[in-house]
């Protein structure tokens, strides 16, 4: 889901940064309120955990691979704004240090994997909080929603930015991006994210952990 540099037209790059900047500003305000001696190691560790699970690539049929993200877990443990900033920090390190995901597309990637993932995960969890499956469904919904935004941003490229019928940026339209990306996340990576979110959430929230605190 990490969109590389050169895949999005300058107009979409500008638009995604314009949307992301005020959201980052507000997210930082929320982080500032939440960050203290008690939460700092926890937020740091959960962000590092997200970085680690994104390195665990899982192959799927059809010659591609993918990974879980971890936005939903942070969103339901803290709040979606913290999760958005945490995932943005992870994506920044991936782009700048490891060349994974572009710099021009950093805003688009943060909005998809961070913002959309965090908020969808958070609200799905809230809606089904009474049920045991809530964190699992939250994880699944979060990455599927994230993949939908990525599929949309990539898929509109050839529609609007082609010269004489030749695509200038990402060449495949919505008819290809939606089934390939959203489909793969519904069937495979969403399930991995569901298991990760649900199992880790239950483990962190189980009785023993509370006594140990």
């Amino acid at each position: 889901m990490h969109i590389p540099d050169g895949y999005l037209s300058p107009a979409v790059v500008v638009a995604t940064y314009a949307v992301a900047l005020p959201l980052w500003a507000f997210g930082f305000k929320k982080l500032k309120e939440a960050l203290n001696e008690e939460t700092l190691p926890l937020i740091g560790a959960l962000s590092a955990l997200s970085f680690i699970i994104m390195m665990l690539n899982i192959p799927i049929p059809g010659g591609t691979s993918g990974h879980a993200v971890g936005a939903a877990l942070i969103a339901i443990l803290f709040n979606p704004w913290i999760a958005f900033i945490a995932i943005s920090v992870v994506l920044l390190i991936q782009a700048v240090v490891f060349g994974d995901g572009g710099v021009s597309t950093f805003a688009a990637n943060s909005l998809a994997m961070g913002f959309v993932g965090a908020f969808v995960g958070y609200y799905v969890f809230k809606m089904f909080k009474r049920y045991k499956f809530a964190p699992f469904l939250a994880g699944w919904s979060a990455v599927v929603a994230s993949s939908f935004l990525v599929a949309f941003l990539l898929g509109i490229e050839p529609i609007f930015w082609s010269k004489n019928g030749t695509p200038l940026y990402f060449p495949f339209g919505l008819k290809e991006t939606i089934p390939a990306l959203v489909g793969a996340h519904m069937l495979f990576f969403g399930v991995v994210e569901a298991l990760f979110t649900g199992l880790v959430y239950n483990y962190l929230k189980s009785k023993k952990a509370e006594f140990a605190q």
């Binding site: 969109i3 590389p4 690539n57 010659g63 591609t64 691979s65 993918g66 990402f170 390939a180």
Partner: peptide, 11 residues
Amino acid sequence: GLLTDSPAWGE
């Protein structure tokens, strides 16, 4: 994470 050489779709 290194078991697969396959890239992500679109990458």
